[in-house]
Amino acid sequence: MVKVRSFSYSLLQLVAFCGLFWLCNLAVAALHIPIPGSVFGLGILVLLLGVGIVPERAVKAGSAVLLGELLLFFIPPVVSVLKYRALLQADGLVIVACVVLGTLMALVGTALVVDRIYTLEKRMNDKRDQQRHLHDDHHVGEGV
């Protein structure tokens, strides 16, 4: 019974996400907003969650389903590789090489940069936390 209820709850939220997507597509077209309806909708929902108009539990289950099964939604276009059989036979190896090398470059490049920045930001955060603690201790001292 609980399972049935949580299933229908998720389904309802799923329908709500589809409705929001549809509305956002209309809005983007009508207002000539230069970004896709889906990304516009993402921004709107973050905003609605942020100001508390939409409570988290109203979208949590539906979001978990959509993001958990994301792979299922783009499996069909991947089957289109069959359309590109000639391309893949001729250039498949080159394409694979590009993907491997490109991914390696992007991974290592991003990791190296973030490595430095994160160390810096963590040190800044720790310092701030430490100062706040000192400050708090000071107040406690005054109270006594």
């Binding site: 969650l49 988290e56 979001s63 993001l67 499996i75 920045i117 810096l120």
Partner: peptide, 29 residues
């Protein structure tokens, strides 16, 4: 199924909201 990629994009709003504390803590990173 492919049409569901649109609503799925909107669904990314929820993890952004849930992880707002991390965003506040590491904006530069």
């Amino acid at each position: 199924l492919v049409l569901m990629l649109g609503p799925a994009t909107i669904a990314f709003a929820v993890p952004i909201y849930q992880q707002r504390e991390t965003i506040r803590r590491f904006p530069l990173t």
